[in-house]
Nucleic acid binder design. Structure first.
Lengths: 263, 263
DNA sequence: CAATCTTTGTGCACGCGTTCACAAAGACAT
DNA sequence: ATGTCTTTGTGAACGCGTGCACAAAGATTG
């Protein structure tokens, strides 16, 4: 059943470590900002703080791309912007389709960050016939029936899935069958794809849960500091609520809800 | 200027490795699905494939929580759901505010995955006075002026930022000053926060860029396989477009656009 | 009760990623 | 041309995360 690698299995994709690839867009963003302010050069130190990373890490990252810096001076902003763009493949145009035009899909369609970096929304696709033809972000929504044709006609290789969890795997299979080899998945499901297809996952619920874990830990430390006293945690109630027989009741009435209704 | 740790610096937060914490929600989701199907027990193998991970990894992850399995049988689904929920802090109620009610903010407000896991949207906040009072996801949007009061009255410790990049840092500071200690940031900016505040970042543009990198790599390999022939890449044009003097032209007219307009 | 079989829990080794610290390289001043 | 000063690029050490492989634990059967 080959669950197909999600989030890259740490395979070094041609010399450049995966961790570095994940940071390149960050550097690129910081560099673009500098470029707009017409800053000619930056030191690794400055750029690192702008990108929120360690300067040694940044230098090592850049060293994988080649020696683009000048010792004693720093990096040429424009040149570096170009090199990173090229390395990331942003010098070419990437047509993208978004499947599932609910609230989230619409938000993505309107997202300016796509167009600004070589990504072009080639089509918006939804399974709901009532959506067909309706304009979203200045573009008519097309029905799922057209999916294969759209992919083919536009040479789309990147697909974004913003459907409910239940539909995701099926949509995924159709995308892959039609020629898509990279998928950005917003549906809260594990997609299983054949070898050679890349899947990246964005899961809002998971991010929040991770935050909750750390939040709880912080609260626990505070509580430990205050020793054991059942004081009112804050203004309102419910902190450290009834926590012992929740086991049975917990069973989400609507399990893992869609990534926003697509109508 | 302490850029405050983003994405956890691999500090082992009380025995449980960060990598494990990040997977717990995944397991929880798979377990919840099993629970709904009234499956009483699962083996590490089954659960692992359902969650899309290696079974050894899963067992090791669980071993950090304690010995909750039974050798020769597997794990009790209900019990494990409870233990993981408790570990993640989901047995308590987490009030959350969403700041920036544009397309994305609205999508998040409508997202069912929040409510289903102990998260409760306490308020929707936007800087646009025209938005004030307008109902989104059955809840009136409130003006930014109320931010501090809302945070305090509801004991909010988790905030979601879905504003344009330009407003994010300022909103972040107000949230933190009001008592928020965990932030989920959708704006394409590096937030700088004081020690003790956790920030997790979700960046659509970055995810796409990472996909583009791998996509390009795949295309490169294919091209290499076909040797050097300038054949028509696919049906349509533009693949491997003019790629050499883009350096100068690249300089995004609208740089790093907001994470969807908030009105 | 003993034997067998299944599945957990973990010791161990390996590899990736991060960070330190410094030598090499070049700019700049004299 | 020489020396000084800044900043890069990287060798080396360390730590975390992953996966193998197996012993221990318990269930189950005869």
């Amino acid at each position: 059943m080959a669950t197909g690698r999600t989030h890259r299995p740490a395979t070094r994709s041609r010399g450049i470590p995966e961790a570095t690839v994940a940071r390149l867009p960050l550097y690129l963003r910081a560099l673009t900002a500098l470029s707009e302010r017409s800053v000619p050069t930056v030191s690794s130190e400055e750029l690192a703080t702008a990108a929120g990373v360690n300067s040694a890490k940044l230098r090592k990252d850049f060293s994988y791309l080649g020696s683009y810096g000048t010792r004693g001076v720093g990096y040429d902003v424009e040149y570096l912007v170009y090199q990173i763009s090229r390395e990331l493949g942003l010098t070419q145009d990437w047509p993208v389709v978004i499947v599932g035009i609910g609230n989230l899909g619409a938000a993505l369609a309107n997202y300016g960050g796509f167009a600004s970096r070589g990504f072009r929304v080639a089509a918006l696709i939804d399974a709901d016939p009532a959506m067909a033809g309706k304009p979203v972000a200045g573009m008519p929504v097309q029905h799922t029936d057209e999916l294969e044709k759209i992919i083919n006609d536009n040479g789309v290789s990147i697909g974004v899935i913003a459907t409910p969890a239940g539909a995701a795997q099926q949509v995924c299979e159709r995308l892959v069958a039609a020629g898509v080899t990279s998928i950005l998945n917003f549906a809260p499901t594990v997609l299983s794809v054949p070898e050679g297809v890349d899947v990246r996952k964005v899961d809002l619920s998971i991010e929040l849960q991770i935050l909750a874990f750390h939040e709880q830990r912080k609260a626990g430390e505070d509580a430990a500091a205050e020793a054991a006293l059942p004081a009112v945690a804050r203004d309102d109630a419910a902190i450290e609520a009834a926590a012992d027989d929740v086991a049975a009741s917990r069973k989400g009435p609507d399990g893992d809800v869609p990534a926003v209704m697509p109508a």
